[in-house]
């Protein structure tokens, strides 16, 4: 069960990923806020970020199922991320 508390809706401070990308919530990249000087960012509570993230993956799964009964995978590891974990 999730209990909504307003005080918990501000994301933690960012961790840098690349020159232009940061991460605040696990597995969720975000633009470096410095790049958003012309287009202001919104006050986005944690629950909303998470909602979007989860919906994205549900949507992608749905799209697979929409076009075929089953997804066949090569079953091989990424060869690019190996050298750059």
């Amino acid at each position: 069960m999730t209990i909504f508390r307003l005080g918990e809706q501000t994301p933690p401070p960012p961790r840098r990923i690349t020159d232009t990308v940061v991460e605040r919530l696990e597995h969720q990249y975000e633009v470096d806020p410095d790049l958003m000087q012309i287009t202001p960012q919104q006050d986005m509570p944690v629950w909303d970020s998470r909602r979007i993230f989860n919906a994205r993956w549900d949507h992608l799964d749905w799209m697979h199922a929409h076009f075929a009964d089953e997804v066949l995978l090569a079953g091989e590891e990424s060869e690019t991320m190996e050298e750059h974990p």
């Binding site: 919104q42 993230f53 949507h59």
Partner: peptide
């Protein structure tokens, strides 16, 4: 869905 969380927009 694709970038709303990334840009916080």
């Amino acid at each position: 869905l694709m970038t709303g969380d990334f840009y916080r927009h």
